[in-house]
Simulated scan of single mutants.
Amino acid sequence: MTKVYFFDFDGTLTKHDTMFMFLRFCDLNRFSAKFLLHVPLFIMLKLKLAKAEKVKRHFISSVLKGKTENFLKEKANEFFEKNYPNLIRENALDFIQNIDRTQSESYIVTASLDIWVKPFAEKFEMNLIATETEFKNGVFTGHFKGPNCNGKEKVKRIKQILGDKKFDKSIAFGDTSGDKALLKYANEGHYKFFH
């Protein structure tokens, strides 16, 4: 029986959200200064007066724009070394290690940026579907390639990548409203399964 697994990353596999962690890790001084400037936007977000994608894009851009791809890749690897395996939920780790790889494919499907999730996906031997960082001449433009990989966009991206591939069963794991479409799309959707 062939299976395909879809795992959300932040909060599902990890104990904490990784965006703030990674941005802080990359450039603490810039992070602190920009965080204070963004507090009104974060408040508007909590009150549902601002769009999450816009605020996220703006904040990431304010901290990382202009950094080179090499610098960010290096930082992503250091971030992984520093936080693996402690950042990952123990039962999620057990589950991943026990997947039968001969009969299945596994994907991390995340709204987080590909740049810092990639080392985790590689460690788990999983394919990565994420919000994509846009580089021009080896420098981060402050923009994403395409939409934020969240909500219905997760399903859209999965369908694009899987194409005509057929599996007997699809199993998805998520932990927020941004994963609802994904959990509904799979034959078997698990909410907060590893919590």
Rank of each mutant, 00 (worst) to 15 (best):
M21D: 14
G163Q: 06
I161S: 02
R57T: 13
L72T: 04
A130K: 00
H16P: 04
R24Q: 10
E74M: 14
L113D: 01
N86I: 11
H195Y: 15
D27K: 09
N148M: 11
L23F: 05
F124D: 00
F140P: 01
D168M: 12
M1N: 12
L41C: 10
L183K: 04
G174P: 03
N83F: 06
Q160T: 09
A172V: 06
K156L: 11
F79M: 07
K46P: 02
K67V: 06
L37A: 09
L41N: 12
G146L: 08
T110V: 05
F7I: 11
L28M: 13
K54I: 10
V117F: 07
I158V: 08
K152T: 14
D27F: 11
Y5M: 03
K156D: 09
L128T: 01
L87A: 07
A111D: 04
I60D: 00
F80V: 03
N148K: 08
P147S: 10
L87N: 01
F22E: 00
A130N: 01
L128K: 01
L47D: 07
L183T: 04
M44F: 13
F194D: 00
L47Q: 12
D164K: 12
T110D: 01
K136R: 15
F140N: 02
D17A: 13
Y84R: 02
F7S: 07
I60S: 00
F95Q: 03
R101L: 08
K82L: 13
M21Y: 07
S62Q: 08
F35V: 02
N148L: 11
N86D: 14
M19H: 09
K48A: 07
F95P: 02
G189P: 07
L87G: 05
T110C: 03
S106Y: 05
H58T: 14
F7D: 06
F22V: 01
M1I: 13
A186W: 08
L49Y: 10
K46H: 08
K152W: 10
Y107G: 00
I161M: 10
F22S: 00
P85K: 09
F42R: 04
M1F: 13
V55T: 09
G66V: 14
E188F: 11
N127V: 08
K48F: 03
H58R: 15
K3N: 15
V39M: 10
F22K: 01
E74H: 15
K123L: 05
C149G: 09
P147A: 08
G163C: 05
V109F: 04
D94V: 11
K145V: 13
W116G: 01
S32C: 11
Y5F: 13
D27N: 15
K51T: 05
E132Q: 14
N77T: 12
V63L: 02
K48T: 03
T68H: 13
G189C: 10
T176R: 03
G142E: 06
F124Q: 01
L113Y: 07
P119M: 05
I88V: 14
R30V: 11
V139C: 06
L162V: 06
S62L: 06
F42P: 02
Y107V: 00
Q160F: 05
E122W: 09
K166H: 13
